[in-house]
Amino acid sequence: MQDAPPSLLAVDGLTYAYGARLAVDHIAFDVRRGEVFGLLGPNGAGKTTAIACLSGLQRPAGGTLTFDGAPFDPVERPADRARLGLVPQSLAVYDDLTALENLVFFAEMLGVEDPREAAVAGLALAGLQERSRERVRTFSGGMKRRLNLAAGLVHRPELTLLDEPTVGVDPQSRHHIFEALETLKAKGHSMLYTSHSMDEVERLCDRVAIMDTGRLLDTGTPAELAERAGLPGADLEATFLELTGHRLRDEA
């Protein structure tokens, strides 16, 4: 049996509360080096809050984070944040700047030594070389989504946190984004990926964690999860519904 790759990010007992409500309730998992790890859950499960804690946007109420075996504090230590890439759910790019200017700016903010070179590489990743000098305002939703992805990867982070990176895109852009992510995976890039699309997760992720109401229900490969849910051979969607139930989750 092949040894599992070493853990890159280890999360243990991570907790975050909005007032009295626990949005993330003592969750524990690890993302291994070179792995794509899927974080699944219905609306309001706590996925985005967990990512906010991991990326230093929110200070966890409890738990420990370890990165490559060392304590990790992205809230307090900018150098720790530099090891991560964030692709947020929103289209976090500047409409009045060109695609190139956007990537140069983010590369500068992320401390890249040659921001222009990194931006040009990012444009290639997003398939936007031809439109590099056009303002983002003129881009389609899919183009913006690709640029959003490139902006999170422009500094070649050790681990990239992707929060539903394909929401609302056309099939062509989705295909392009997936190709880009599979290329990165093939090169050994580590990613933590959240999505509502079970197909995407099954296609891309090596292991998956399923969350609901702030708690982690199970972690493993899709086949392991199905087995433990009593649905051997079932697809991930069936396993997910078995674990989280059929109740509608309308986020406020």
């Binding site: 946007l57 900018p78 150098a79 944040r81 964030l86 759910q89 929103s90 976090a92 902006a151």
Partner: peptide, 14 residues
């Protein structure tokens, strides 16, 4: 509102 602040806050800068 646009979400770009999240990127700035997660960047390795004070």
């Amino acid at each position: 509102d646009k979400g770009t602040l999240v990127r700035l806050l997660s960047a390795p800068v004070p």
